[in-house]
Design a protein around this nucleic acid. Structure first.
Length: 805
RNA sequence: GCCGAAGUGGUGGAACUGGUAGACGCGCUGGCUUCAGGAGCCAGUGGGUGCAAGCCCGUGUGGGUUCGAGUCCCACCUUCGGCACCA
């Protein structure tokens, strides 16, 4: 082969050419029914905002796509689908802002996203694109709801919920950040509404236990663990003179002798009967006050918030001491956690201590031997005092013994408590899948029969939410009134739609089966492709999306619909791209629009640049200073390919060893998503090849293969220039040979007392004897030995020799 | 307050199970080329000192372990992320 004339590298031409080829030749469409080695490479699907894909999305998708392409090169049939998480308050609010309808807005946004995703050059199987707003999709979201309902895991209850007065909707606990709505920042209020819940807490222990056997990063698992929040403790029962029982939850039953008063949440159902007549006015006033407080004032502030509370005017008997102690209500006790009542141990709990100090309640220490002095000390490593027969026991010992002792008298039982709450899925909004439930006077709550699914979200003009706490759908009588599926009488529909997180809690099951209209996921396809081989996404979803998806999969397993209970055995979280140290957002005005970069530099350069910015799993600050470095590198590869010569003679040793080292390193880096160092390694290799003046095909082709996941368009073009007829992604990953990688000389560092005093170039595997001989002959080494005899010599093969004198 | 991650040149970042700190890139400096600008190519680029070979210092701070510490241990400081009156 003779060197060919180098044409100019024109990314736009190359990229559109290969994108067209991939589509025509079905390059990215694996055989879903009979794949040789199936590999489900999943990335978290985007919410199609009106702003289009931003740099952060592109960063995430590029990193995930590189991973998929690498697996493809290793011979897997890689299924890499993409879709749109298109329902939700985001879209609805934006539509309201710009005066349009979400049903008009979303298709436009999706079209723009699709276009951008094409340009980025992802290995997407476009046959299986999906949108959660498609009735063919949300039919099965509703089906999923029905399965949970039938299994007794979906229930309705009147509950205190987080209400956003601006978005006019209920929020899940997870959507409340610092007491504020995660979207608009408005302080969240408490409201009491009938809501649909999923009983995720029933599976709390399982969700926690399974974490141990998932191949996830520790940090992600820790986030989930903390969110689930398991506490071991006991329920203790306190009795009033009238025989009324109050149960509290505590993690420190060993301190029960120090419980000098009881506190109930203001909403606690027993408050009414426990209130003495003379305290009624004060108590009712306090209850009203607590209820009207928004969640910010009630919850945020931790220790800073001044404690408030009211004495009920009545007493209970401490089951351990037999003493009579007062009962109070205070809003620092939450009705949702434990039993909504606590025993207060002011000597050993900060909050109780603050409260007791303020209201002059007795403080009784029952633990000593702790470090540090002042009350309250939260000592669980000391020994008990003032605790009757239990004095002198360690806290840990006392815990079990006291519970056992009280249990004999029916005043205690061990109990595990979770911080996790049931998942509230109701939304009093328009832009979501209607919850498939019908209310009939005669039959009560009637699930919509599966044959009647989907319950189509009607196209209505006045979709704006109002203050009523009722979905806008309720205003549409023709939709609202419906015949009862059981008795045929006039009935009415549930008007709430479901949480967006329900849409995304099963989409990975749908992708391989998008063409089936009569089933949510085809059993054979599901068996072949699931669970997901590798899931790549942002750590911002470490709790919500990932926990909900695990829960729904667990339920589907129990119901016999799938054969596995963990959908994502292997998860990799990428970092977030920020701009000027802050998350990109329209309001901050720091959104980086990637299209201009793709226009100027091409998708391949941009993809690689994003990956070269820093470690993929850490993310970082976006800047564009270094992009020319990547472009220069790709130009060098382009030139190398054009100047390539046929294989002849032996390759230079430096090239051979560097080549095999590079193949090994790039492969290992790709497997662990360390793309920045993989790119650096390829750059080093190109520098070696160029300075060796090597143009041999055997030096160039493996480089092109390694580069393929990063710069797929350019590489396809190069591969064709090199005379190949099929896609480079069927060519296979190059093999490395450790023996060849070890070819050539190594430099050994000679140290005297740990300081570098000389370097020796030796052949690999040289003996210590030879190195010592040469080292001791070295002038600068000799100088530092000062004629003294070595006390000790440390030798590390092929690395260093350290002489200690 | 609790949990987690991280602090390395002018800059983004490298550094395997403790073994040459600063790979790779950007930027900068000098040179070549060019009418010029740009691009390209070559060389240099942690700080100090020296004509030079070299020497000294250097990975947030202070200790420690070790022949040897960015890496391990102890105590701090700072930044970022998550949770937050969860009993």
């Amino acid at each position: 082969m003779s060197p060919r004339e180098t044409t100019e590298y024109d990314p736009a031409a190359v990229e559109s050419k290969w994108q067209a080829h991939w589509a025509e030749r079905h390059t990215n469409e694996p055989d879903l029914d009979r794949p040789a080695r199936p590999y489900y490479n999943l990335m978290m699907f985007p919410y199609p905002s009106a702003e289009g894909l931003h740099v952060g999305n592109m960063f995430a998708f590029t990193g995930a796509d590189i991973y998929g392409r690498f697996q493809r090169l290793q011979g897997y049939a890689v299924f890499e689908p993409i879709g749109y998480d298109a329902f939700g308050i985001h879209s609805e609010n934006y539509a309201i802002t710009i005066g349009t309808h979400p049903a008009k807005l979303i298709p436009k946004n999706i079209a723009a996203f699709r276009n951008q995703l094409h340009r980025l050059g992802g290995m997407f199987d476009w046959r299986h694109e999906l949108a959660t707003t498609d009735p063919k999709y949300y039919k099965w979201t509703q089906w999923l709801f029905l399965q949970l309902y039938k299994a007794g895991l979906a229930y309705k209850k009147r509950a205190a919920v987080n209400w956003c007065p601006k978005d006019k909707t209920v929020l899940a606990n997870e959507q409340v950040i610092d007491g504020r709505c995660e979207r608009c920042g408005t302080p969240v209020e408490q409201r009491f509404l009938e809501q649909w819940f999923f009983a995720i807490t029933k599976h709390a222990q399982r969700l926690l236990d399974n974490l141990d056997r998932l191949d996830w990063s520790d940090s992600t698992r820790t986030l989930q663990r903390n969110w689930i929040g398991r506490s071991e403790g006991a329920e203790l029962t306190f009795e009033t003179p009238a025989g009324q029982k109050i149960t509290v939850f505590t993690t420190r039953p060993d301190t029960v002798f120090g419980a000098t008063y009881l506190v109930l949440a203001p909403e606690h159902p027993l408050v009414e009967t426990l209130t003495a007549r003379e305290q009624q006015t004060a108590v009712r006033g306090y209850q009203r006050e607590a209820q009207s407080k928004d969640v910010v004032t009630r919850r945020v502030g931790g220790g800073d918030t001044t404690k408030t509370g009211v004495f009920l005017g009545s007493y209970v008997r401490n089951p351990a001491t037999g003493e009579s102690i007062p009962i109070w209500i205070a809003d620092y006790v939450l009705m949702e956690y434990g039993t909504g009542a606590i025993m207060a141990v002011p000597a050993h709990d900060e909050r109780d201590h603050e409260f007791a100090t303020k209201f002059n309640l007795p403080i009784q220490p029952v633990v000593k031997g702790h470090k540090g002095g002042a009350l309250p000390f939260v000592a669980d490593d000391g020994v008990l005092v003032n605790s009757g027969a239990f004095d002198g026991l360690s806290c840990a010992e006392a815990r079990n013994k006291i519970v056992a002792w009280l249990a004999e008298r029916g005043a205690a039982r061990a109990r595990v408590q979770f911080r996790l709450h049931d998942w509230c899925i109701s939304r009093q909004r328009y832009w979501g899948p209607p919850i498939p439930i019908i209310y009939c006077e005669a039959c009560g709550v009637v699930p919509v029969p599966e044959k009647d699914l989907p319950v189509i979200l009607p196209l209505i003009e006045d979709f704006r939410p109002d203050d009523s706490g009722v979905s806008p759908l309720a205003r549409h009588q023709e939709w609202y009134f419906v015949k009862c599926p059981q008795c045929g009488a006039q009935a009415r529909r549930e008007t709430d739609v479901s949480d967006t997180f329900l849409d995304s809690a099963w989409y990975f099951l749908r992708y391989p089966s998008t063409e089936f209209d009569d089933r949510p996921f085809d059993p054979a396809r599901t068996k072949t492709w699931l669970p997901v081989t590798t899931y790549i996404g942002g750590n911002e979803h470490a709790v919500l999306h990932l926990l909900y998806s695990r829960f729904t999969t667990m339920v589907l397993k129990d119901l016999g619909h799938v054969s596995f209970e963990e959908p994502f055995p292997k998860l990799r979280a990428h970092g977030i791209i920020v701009k000027d140290g802050a998350k990109m957002s329209k309001s901050r005005g720091n959104v980086v629009v990637p299209d201009a970069y793709i226009n100027q530099w091409g998708a391949d350069t941009f993809r690689m640049y994003l990956m070269f910015l820093g470690p993929f799993q850490e993310g970082g600050d976006f800047r564009d200073e270094g992009i020319t470095g990547i472009r220069r590198f790709l130009e060098k590869v382009w030139v190398l390919v054009h100047e390539v010569t046929s294989a002849s003679g032996d390759l230079p040793k430096v090239v051979v060893s560097k080549l095999h080292q590079t193949i090994k390193k790039v492969g290992a880096d790709l497997e662990s998503l360390q793309y920045n160092t993989a790119i650096a390694a390829m750059m080093e290799y190109v520098n070696v090849v160029r300075s060796a003046g090597c143009t041999d095909r055997r030096a160039v082709e493996p480089l092109v293969l390694m580069l393929a996941p990063f710069a797929p368009h350019l590489v396809e073009e190069c591969w064709e220039l090199l005379g190949h007829k099929t896609t480079v992604f069927d060519a296979g990953w190059p093999k490395h040979d450790d023996a060849l990688a070890a070819m050539g000389d190594v430099e050994i560092v000679v140290q005297v007392n740990g300081r570098v005093r000389g370097r020796l170039s030796v052949t690999r595997g040289v003996s210590q004897q030879d190195v010592e001989t040469r080292a001791f002959a070295d002038e600068s080494v000799k100088k530092f030995l000062e004629g003294k005899a070595p006390k000790k010599v440390v030798y590390v093969q092929d690395r260093l020799l350290n002489v200690v004198v």
